[in-house]
């Protein structure tokens, strides 16, 4: 029934907002207080040198492991979004197949210190220099720039929770079997976000947040492009030592 009179009452919307905020908090890899306390804990020159001395395949494997850990938290976030588990299993996979990396990138801004352009990684904060041996300077600069731009919006945790859910519940993903259902979920999340931004007196944020979506998609494409470049040079490494979930999602 395409015009199903879904009860979008205010109470329902507020309950949905609370549930998503709780899901975000319960599945955050790092607590905000922990990140704040560690923000000036930087890698030493020696530690930085150790990262930069890693071979390209060592660093790629290390980063693939860290990225896969972050993705698993996003999968848990998705599972707690009301209605997500009601979707068909193929559609759940389709939404996460691309959306998981996008949410990881959104969440990364929580782990970013704009004052010195460093990101939390392996327990300390490091700059793009830390990732030099990946051989993906342009990707890392683009990712750091994105983190800067999201930090500039000064999102509250609640706003980030809603935005993350909107990034994930995307009815435009290809191969969705029940696009209508995803669309209805998405519509309620959009109502939640605008309700929250109205409450916070920050309605101008909505447009800025939606503008981020296209940047996210280009970052994800660049990541896959770099992975393709790496896989061509080190096919055995990808096949034998990369995390299986990473391979499932990105190769």
């Amino acid at each position: 029934d395409p015009y199903c009179p879904y009860p979008t009452s205010l109470l329902h919307i507020e309950e949905l907002c609370d549930s998503i905020v709780r899901s975000h908090r319960d599945t955050s890899q790092f607590r905000l207080e922990e990140l704040q306390a560690l923000r000036w804990k930087l890698f030493s020159r020696e530690e930085l040198h150790a990262y930069q001395s890693k071979s390209v395949d060592e660093m790629w494997q290390h980063c693939a492991v860290r990225l896969t850990e972050a993705v698993q938290y996003v999968v848990e976030f998705a599972k707690r979004i009301p209605g997500f588990r009601g979707l068909g299993q193929n559609d759940q996979i389709t939404l996460l197949k691309t959306g998981s990396m996008e949410v990881v990138l959104v969440r990364m801004s929580r782990c970013f210190n704009t004052e010195n352009s460093t990101v939390f990684f392996d327990g300390k904060f490091g700059s793009t220099e830390l990732f030099k041996s990946l051989g993906c300077g342009d990707l890392m600069v683009a990712v750091f720039d994105f983190a800067h731009s999201v930090c500039a919006l000064r999102l509250t945790e609640q706003q980030m929770a809603l935005f993350s859910s909107l990034v994930l519940i995307n009815p435009d993903r290809p191969c969705l079997e029940d696009r209508g259902r995803v669309h209805r979920m998405r519509r309620d999340l959009e109502v939640c976000l605008s309700h929250m931004l109205r409450r916070d007196n920050q309605e101008s944020l909505q447009h800025k947040l939606y503008q981020k979506v296209s940047v996210l998609q280009s970052l994800c494409s660049l990541h896959v492009e770099k992975l393709h470049w790496f896989s061509q040079r080190y096919p055995l490494i990808v096949h034998s030592v990369f995390p299986p979930l990473y391979k499932e999602l990105f190769t």
Partner: peptide
């Protein structure tokens, strides 16, 4: 589902 067995299993696990 076939091509994403690990993701499928993660989705099946309870949200404890």
């Amino acid at each position: 589902k076939e091509k994403h067995k690990i993701l499928h299993r993660l989705l099946q696990n309870s949200t404890s």
